[in-house]
Each structure stands twice: as C-alpha cells, then as structure tokens.
Computed example of a mutant assay.
Amino acid sequence: MASNAFAGLLNSSADRHSLFDDAQGIVAGSMLAVLGVTLLSGAGLLAGGTAGLAFLAHYATGISFGLCFFAVNLPFYYLAFRRMGPAFTIKTFVAIGLTSILSEFAPAFIGVTHVHPVAGALFGGLVIAAGMLALFRHRASLGGIGILALYIQDRLGWRAGLFQLGFDCLILALSFLVASPFIIACSVLGAVVLNLTLAVNHRKDRYIAM
C-alpha cells in the first residue's frame, strides 16, 4: 500500500502533473523569480503589479523586499480562492511564501556588487518570466493584480487588461518618488521583456497539463 501511494506521488501523465511534478515546478519557479528579483534589486529597478508595490515599499522604508512582497499579496488570496479555486490558491500561497523567504536569504548567498540597469532589466525580466512560466504550468502564480483584475472584470465588467495597465501606470507614477527617470525607463524595459516573454511562451493550447 505504501509503495503504491509513493508511486502515485511520482506518476504523471500527458495531461496531469504528479505531486512531485508540482513541487519541483513551484520550487524551481520560485528560485528563478528570486534570482530575477535579485538582478532587478541590484540595479535599483522596479516592477509592475504587487512586485512593484513591494519594491516601492522596500525602497521607501528599507523593509526587506521579501517581507513587503508577502504582505502586499495577503489581500489577494481570498480573490484567488473565489476565482481560481483552492488548489491554485494553496500552490500560489506556497510559491509566494517560498519566494519571500528565499528573497530574505538570497543577498547572503548571491553577492551582486554591480548590475547595470539595462542589463538588470533584460536579464532580470527574462529570468522572472521563466520562473512565472514554470509556476503557470503547474497552476500556480506569484499572486498579484491580475487576480484582482479578473475579479473586477467579473463583478463590474471592466476589462481586466485595462485595469491592470492602469494599476501599473499608477505604480510607474509613484516610482518618480523613489527613482530617477533613467531607472524608471529601465524598469519599463524590464517589464516589456517580462511580459513579451510570457505572451510568446504562455499558451494554454500548447500546454495542457494540470
């Protein structure tokens, strides 16, 4: 019986991930996200969504990014549960928690002494996108405004994409309080790289495993 239960944790199929598949995907995705965040932070850059809020709070208060990132995502778990179900919410909570914890310890193990803002935008945006793709493919995410945008679209009929764009514009406007125009321009470049990578590579009709 025990061996059968253990085999069930490892066995996956063409259209369904095993528990082990999900676990390694969430760990790998979180690690890649932390590496990307480390590059952005080393270059003094910001991001959109809840990561952008966390960066703003981090730069303005000196509180660690990991703690800020975990805190700003707390209100979205209820919406994730309502919109996406308990499995997605639990895996997203684990991914955010792991990303937050690893972000706390990453500076002690990854010594980034200098990152040019343009390089930080290109490499940081790409690595975070790779991490998010890994999470998406295991029906998890790093939380964020996207969940709220979908919820508001359902309740109020507002377009989710326009709502998210408006929120990111607000983050960009607030960024002028803590960053120079050049840093903000590089942050926009990083966001373009991240979202373009997601747009090209994340298609449900090409990847159907649950």
Rank of each mutant, 00 (worst) to 15 (best):
T61L: 09
S41T: 13
L40V: 12
A43R: 08
G124H: 09
H138S: 01
R83Q: 14
T92R: 12
V94N: 02
G44Y: 08
G49T: 00
V127L: 03
F136I: 09
L32G: 00
H114P: 11
G97A: 10
F109I: 04
A134R: 08
V72P: 06
A106W: 07
S64E: 11
T92F: 15
A130E: 12
L67A: 12
T99P: 10
R139V: 05
M84I: 11
V115D: 02
L135I: 08
E104D: 12
H114L: 10
L67Y: 09
I96S: 12
H138V: 11
S64T: 06
S30N: 03
A95E: 10
I128G: 04
F65I: 09
L122W: 04
G36Y: 04
R137T: 06
V118Q: 06
G48W: 00
F69S: 06
S103W: 10
F123E: 05
L98V: 03
A140M: 03
A71V: 13
G144W: 03
G44W: 01
H114Y: 14
A47F: 12
G124S: 01
F81D: 01
A51K: 01
S100V: 12
A60L: 15
S64P: 06
G52N: 05
M132D: 01
A51I: 08
F88I: 14
V34W: 06
F93W: 13
A80I: 10
T113M: 14
F109D: 00
I147N: 02
A80Y: 08
E104G: 03
G97Y: 11
I96M: 08
H114I: 05
V127H: 01
L79H: 06
S30I: 09
A71G: 02
G120R: 05
A129H: 14
G131K: 10
L98M: 11
